[in-house]
């Protein structure tokens, strides 16, 4: 094992801050374009460092390599969750490794506590907006829907209004308009598809 002897280019001359900026840019490229060359730079920098962290933590080469593999796989697959506003690449990657280590040890000990790393440190959870943000989002979406609703064809508008605003059942609408239930259903489906399409364009 060649500890501390670089196998390939090494950025030892680069200041940590510059390096963080550089690594952030690579991570963003990985997220945006699945750029393998960028990922290999990230891997080249972090894998050997993670391996020495993992060896210190786990004291076993096979486990250490498993930890490196799982951590770097997550970096590759979930690079879009990295947020340079929140911290440096090394902090983000450390928290991923720390979480995997925590769950590895739980499994090795077959501990039965129902408490996993994601509960304690939700590093890799998709951001779910908290309540205030949600209501704001919903507000915006409602405003959008109102605008878009007015662009629907008249026949679809009538059906959507009856179901979602007046709270009628599809059968009631069919009876009132004297049209087959199937027509109400297809108008509803078409209208919703259309709204969905318009909303995603709007975004």
């Amino acid at each position: 094992m060649l500890v501390g002897i670089p196998l390939e280019h090494e950025n030892s001359a680069i200041e940590p801050k510059e390096c963080a900026v550089e690594m952030s840019q690579y991570l963003i490229k990985v997220a945006e374009t699945r750029c393998k060359a960028s990922f290999s730079r990230v891997f080249g920098y972090f894998a050997p460092r993670l391996r020495s962290y993992a060896l210190r933590q786990l004291g076993n080469e096979a486990l250490a390599m498993e930890l490196v593999q799982d951590t770097m796989s997550n970096v590759w697959q979930k690079a879009h969750l990295f947020d340079s506003e929140k911290g440096s690449p090394s902090t983000w990657i450390f928290t991923i490794a720390r979480n995997i280590r925590f769950d590895m040890l739980r499994k090795l000990q077959s501990r039965k506590e129902d408490i996993c790393a994601d509960d304690l440190w939700p590093v890799l959870c998709e951001q779910t907006p908290d309540q205030n943000e949600t209501s704001l989002d919903e507000q915006v979406t409602l405003d959008q829907i109102e605008l878009l609703f007015n662009e629907l064809p008249e026949k679809q508008k009538v059906v959507i209004q009856a179901i979602y605003i007046d709270g009628k059942s599809q059968q009631e609408i069919a009876d009132e308009l004297d049209i087959p239930l199937g027509t109400v259903k297809s108008r509803t489906r078409l209208a919703l598809q259309r709204l969905k399409g318009m909303l995603s364009e709007y975004d």
């Binding site: 094992m1 670089p6 891997f43 894998a47 050997p48 391996r51 490196v68 770097m72 450390f94």
Partner: peptide, 23 residues
């Protein structure tokens, strides 16, 4: 993270190339 990862001694492994390729 700075002391444990950023400043860590680098520990190479001959399997890194294969690992990178598989990831």
């Amino acid at each position: 993270a700075n002391t444990e990862i950023e400043q860590a001694v680098q520990s190479y492994d001959p399997d890194f190339d294969a690992m990178l390729a598989s990831i």
